Simulated assay, not measured.
Amino acid sequence: MTTTALLGLLYRLQLTPTAIDVLSVMFERAEAGGDVPLKQSEIDEVLGVGQASMSRAMALLVDRGLVLRSGNGRGHRYALNPAIAGYESEDEMKQEMTNLLALGGPPSITVPEYNRRPPKQGGRGGLHAVA
C-alpha cells in the first residue's frame, strides 16, 4: 500500500482527529524505512493534545496497524508500517518488501467494517445537553 492509497482509506479507518494529527507528525519526522525518532511525549509537545488524548490516539494507530510499537513500558519505540513508510529510493523499498515477503509480508492494516449502518448525525436518540 502506498501513502497515496492510505490517504484514500483514511475515512474508512475511522481515526480520530488527534490520531490523524499524530500520524501526520510521524510521517513528517519518520526516517527512511519508517522509524520514528520521537517519543510519544515529544509528539505531544508538537501537537499539545495532552497525555491521555495522545495515548488513545497512539493506541488506535497501533490497533489499526498503521504504527508499530516495540519496547516495554515508557521505552516504546515507534515506526510506521513498512507498507506505508517512505524510502530513500524505489530500490530500497523493493528490497524491504522482498525481505518482508520472505517473512510472511508486512504487518496488515486493519480497516474496520460496519456490521450495520453507522448512526445518522442528529435526529432521535442522539446526544442531548442536560441543563
Results as ranks from 00 to 15, higher is better:
Met1Lys: 11
Thr2Asn: 04
Thr2Tyr: 00
Thr3Gln: 10
Leu7Asn: 14
Gly8Thr: 05
Arg12Ile: 01
Arg12Cys: 03
Leu13Gly: 02
Leu13Thr: 11
Gln14Glu: 12
Leu15Asp: 11
Thr16Asn: 08
Thr16His: 11
Thr16Gln: 13
Thr16Lys: 10
Thr18Ile: 13
Ala19Tyr: 07
Ile20Cys: 11
Asp21Tyr: 09
Asp21Ala: 11
Asp21Met: 14
Val22Asp: 02
Val25Asp: 02
Val25Ser: 00
Gly34Arg: 01
Val36Arg: 00
Lys39Glu: 13
Glu45Val: 01
Glu45Ser: 12
Val46Met: 07
Val46Phe: 01
Leu47Gln: 06
Gly50Arg: 04
Gln51Cys: 09
Gln51Gly: 06
Ala52Met: 15
Ala52Thr: 11
Ser55Val: 05
Met58Trp: 00
Val62Leu: 15
Val62Gln: 08
Arg64Tyr: 00
Gly65Lys: 07
Leu66Pro: 13
Leu66Ala: 06
Leu68Phe: 00
Ser70Asn: 11
Asn72Pro: 02
Arg74Glu: 10
Gly75Arg: 15
Tyr78Ala: 04
Tyr78Thr: 09
Tyr78Cys: 05
Ala79Pro: 13
Ala79Phe: 14
Asn81Leu: 03
Gly86Ala: 03
Gly86Lys: 06
Gly86Ser: 14
Glu88Ile: 05
Asp91Thr: 15
Glu92Trp: 02
Gln95Val: 01
Glu96Ile: 04
Met97Val: 10
Thr98Met: 12
Thr98Gln: 15
Thr98Lys: 06
Leu101Lys: 08
Leu101Tyr: 13
Leu103Pro: 00
Pro106Trp: 00
Ser108Val: 15
Val111Asn: 09
Glu113Leu: 09
Asn115Ser: 08
Asn115Arg: 14
Arg116Ala: 09
Arg116Tyr: 10
Arg117Asp: 12
Pro118Glu: 13
Pro119Leu: 06
Lys120Thr: 14
Gln121Asn: 10
Gly122Cys: 03
Gly123Lys: 08
Arg124Val: 06
Gly125Asp: 03
Gly126His: 12
